[in-house]
């Protein structure tokens, strides 16, 4: 069980400012159902630029709800310049701290606030969004870089705790490490060239590509594929489920599976089906 502070428990069990503001001046939304948490933040500003009301709607765990509640409490009475300076660390501190694995809840608060302020200023369109690094949770390089810098993060695990990136399939770990290294000023060793792969590395990469790129697509149609052997550049596979009975399976093999493997592993690969 997580060790939450009394303040987290209080803001979870008795959340302040739940709801929406229909004529809000600022609205910011982050997260998604798929990610497991999401926050929609609303605020209202008076003519002097002071936040007079703030409300939230949150889907998520106890610390996500508590972080949202805390943020709205902090915001009320602040002017926008002050609000803009709120960091995820401030939100966590307001709650007397969050478990390390839950820091991403405070980051979600900061991100929603930032979006809401941009919305208020009509700057939502201008923002440079960056490139997606973590596909599983839709996290960009800019978000990772900023969180690494602001929270002095040093490991991939830290990054996962703070912005979730890298917490799914793990394919982006190398890229996250590169970002950490660039922030901390460390040289990143050059990526290994694919051509220099040992046989074992090649088999592993083929398996990973099958699992990540190919299987999900076949699964949608009730099919599957199994790697039987790798002989030089010849990849022997067996089609399963509906694929095995499908008249178009050879097309799938040559055009889909082979193309993917050539793209992700090595261009000289040839796919053959074992009967």
């Amino acid at each position: 069980m997580w060790e939450y502070t009394d303040k987290v428990k209080d803001h979870f069990l008795n959340p302040r400012n739940v709801g929406k503001i229909d004529d809000a001046d600022g609205v910011g939304e982050v997260g998604s159902l798929a990610c497991g948490d999401a926050l929609r933040l609303y605020f209202k500003v008076d003519k002097d630029g002071k936040i007079i009301d703030a409300k939230f709607q949150t889907f998520g765990c106890a610390s996500a709800i508590a972080s949202s509640s805390a943020l709205t409490e902090m915001l009320k009475g602040m002017n926008l310049e002050e609000a803009q300076k709120i960091s995820n660390e401030d939100i966590a501190q307001f709650l007397g701290g969050l478990p390390k694995e839950k820091m991403h809840c405070s980051v979600m608060g900061r991100d929603a606030l930032e979006k809401a302020i941009d919305y208020y200023r009509g700057e939502s369109e201008k923002k440079q969004e960056g490139n997606i690094v973590c596909e599983c949770f839709g996290v960009t390089d800019l978000e990772i870089e900023r969180t690494v810098r602001e929270n002095n993060l040093r490991t991939i695990e830290d990054v996962t705790d703070y912005v979730k990136a890298g917490g799914g399939c793990g394919q982006c770990h190398d890229q996250i490490q590169e970002i950490i290294d660039s922030v901390t000023g460390k040289e990143t060793p050059k990526r290994k060239e694919k051509v220099g792969m040992t046989n074992l590395q090649k088999i592993k990469l083929i398996e990973e590509t099958l699992e990540r790129e190919i299987r999900p697509a076949l699964k949608q149609d009730g099919g599957d594929i199994e790697l039987i052997d790798v002989d030089g550049n010849q990849v022997l596979v067996k089609l399963r489920g509906t694929c095995a009975k499908c008249a178009a399976s050879q097309v799938t093999l040559k055009h889909y599976v082979e193309n993917k493997l050539q793209e992700f592993v090595a261009p000289e690969l040839v796919v053959e089906e074992v009967q």
Partner: peptide, 14 residues
């Protein structure tokens, strides 16, 4: 649907 399990568990725990 549309709610998160940990939040349910902790409210039930109360």
């Amino acid at each position: 649907e549309y709610v998160e399990g940990e939040a349910i568990l902790l409210m039930m725990n109360e």
